[in-house]
Design a protein around this nucleic acid. Structure first.
Lengths: 200, 200, 200, 200
DNA sequence: AATGAATGAGCCTTCATTCAT
DNA sequence: CATGAATGAAGGCTCATTCAT
């Protein structure tokens, strides 16, 4: 990418980042078209290439940016080192909601990176999401697996919770904008239920 | 569509249905290309349009066919009117595995219809999946919600189980073919765990 | 390339070959546009890519075809094994004029391959022209250098004659079509003069 | 063009002239990109258009400048009014080498003007080179054609020598910079040979 | 019925040109 | 005067769709 992007007014930077994030997150890499971004961000076609060389460069930048920004906020919000399974996760999801105030499609972008299936971009997406996964793993170091009911394995819990959060999030974006409040309240209700049934 | 499609040899019909289902289910509506279907089904490009008018007509037919076929089998398999939450679901998933013997991508097609995000096709996909959702609702009429722990709401259980099954299924297709055995065993393990924690 | 190109009617093949040859020869690889070929050959844009994958594939095919066709005719026309410097060259140039009846831009294409400067295509052009250069070398095996005046070196003669033929040819194409007759008569006049001054 | 260009420091003027000349001469009008000139001359993109309106204006200016500068030097160097065919030409070529010390791509620019094939610029190029052709014609007024062998016509000699010089020059630029010494020595060798065979 | 040659709209990308600073 | 951010038309290429055979 062209580092002069950062010399632009923050406002315009964010307009472009948000535009790209929206289109990539909602449509996936392959179906995301520059024309869509032009419409959404109100920035001419040529400019995207001026700063990001090509479509992949743009994806690469935006996904990286998204993860870095989220991890920064997580760093702060997880400082209390919570140890309860659902406390940890709630802080993480809450942090996503926080950053959605500035980057409304960042939470969906994170999900779409995990789901990306296009061969051309899949390895980039996997690479870029890794630091986030690391951060989550780190957060769970304080969790003590023995607190779980003997009927429940952490792996399976991770799986079902992970897929469920994904589903709730996609629903929260269903009308094209992120309904943050609704997302958090659904997550909370879900966690409240799970809490009652998975612990020893 | 052109009803003469049904005058074709059953074998050829199925080759076309499977080809379309595979490409639509794996790539989604927008990224599914007619060239892929030509390659996969070994049927010339013109023929698809001869019978199905256009891409949307083809999607419409295949998704409808898929749901109808599944519902037919469910009709039979659910005749015993099971009442246990996980018994019902297991029969449903098992039925999907059954039909995968003839239409290997049908289970994924069902999922992909629920996930479809392309604006052009989304309403078609939602319409076509509805009869399947009805059938599932019908199956749960014999289920008595009061069997669940008071900590657990059926809606939330539906949600988490639904998303989790989706996740397990996508994993089972990860190498391009459906690993039916693996799918069923993962589903079973998951249901076994859930059974232990959600009942009163 | 797609070998089914050769199943097309010869007439259409030649229309496409001539169209591509004209645009490549007149404008060079980089400046040759598919739109120009569409206009010149009256064949839609998609078809070029259907048969030749991409622009480089098309260049590669056309330049190869051009050289192979010329060499085939040279094989016949040089059978008499001429030994005089200018006889050899005249037969070669005359052969180019011959093939220009069917492929009017073939002679210019040969020249343009030798002149190609675009980095992307230069190695392809050099590879493709090589068999023609071999054929010319072969034709000169019957030439006895000692026939030249001691004042004249063959290398320098090759150089000045080569550049001059190039110049005459470019002039013969100046109005967009090949003035074959004029080309041959200018070449003949030039050779007549040179003959008188370079021999011992 | 904007005449205030001449108010710039001579150094900057030459940087721009040389940059444009290099890119135009090496790549031809169409393939010459403003970005290349920006890189080569280290002068911002806007400035080229500020002084020269558009690409054609820039070409027009640079080609004109090149010819005027060459003609000025020829005026001086041809003052001795040489009458020998090859003496005249050698002085001309030597003058090109001279001006290459200040405008390294001027000799190639002169050649490229004669070769320009792009429809958009061809008439401009032809117009601009005309004064140089006039100057050459003028230089040959002192040449007595009867000195030539009766076998040799001046027109044909002009032609072959012209094309050959063009070829030698292109070779002398082959690695991107002008190898002036090599150019002159090749020209000399060529003239020495020709001298021996074309005179009466 | 069946094929695949043929078409052209649309997408990614480049580049001359404009314009605010 | 100088800069380079910004624009949009044009070029290479893909792909749903049409149509002659």
């Amino acid at each position: 990418m062209n580092d002069k992007f950062f010399d632009l007014k923050k406002e315009k930077q964010d307009k472009m980042i948000n535009g790209a994030m929206q289109v990539f997150a909602c449509k996936g890499y392959k179906n995301a078209s520059t024309d869509d971004m032009v419409k959404v961000a109100g920035v001419s076609k040529g400019l995207w290439f001026h700063y990001f060389v090509n479509k992949m460069g743009l994806y690469s930048f935006v996904s990286d940016y998204c993860v870095k920004y989220l991890n920064m906020e997580l760093q702060v919000n997880l400082m209390s080192k919570p140890s309860d399974y659902f406390d940890i996760l709630y802080i993480i999801e809450n942090t996503k909601v926080q950053i959605s105030k500035i980057y409304p499609f960042a939470p969906l972008m994170i999900q779409s990176m995990l789901d990306e299936k296009d061969e051309e971009i899949i390895s980039v997406a996997k690479d870029m999401i890794e630091p986030y996964k690391d951060k989550v793993r780190e957060a769970f170091e304080n969790f003590n697996e023995s607190e779980l009911s003997s009927d429940v394995s952490k792996d399976m819990l991770d799986m079902t919770v992970g897929y469920t959060l994904k589903g709730i999030m996609e629903k929260a974006y269903n009308n094209g904008v992120f309904d943050a409040e609704n997302y958090l309240s659904e997550v909370k209700a879900y966690f409240d239920m799970m809490r009652k049934i998975v612990y020893a």
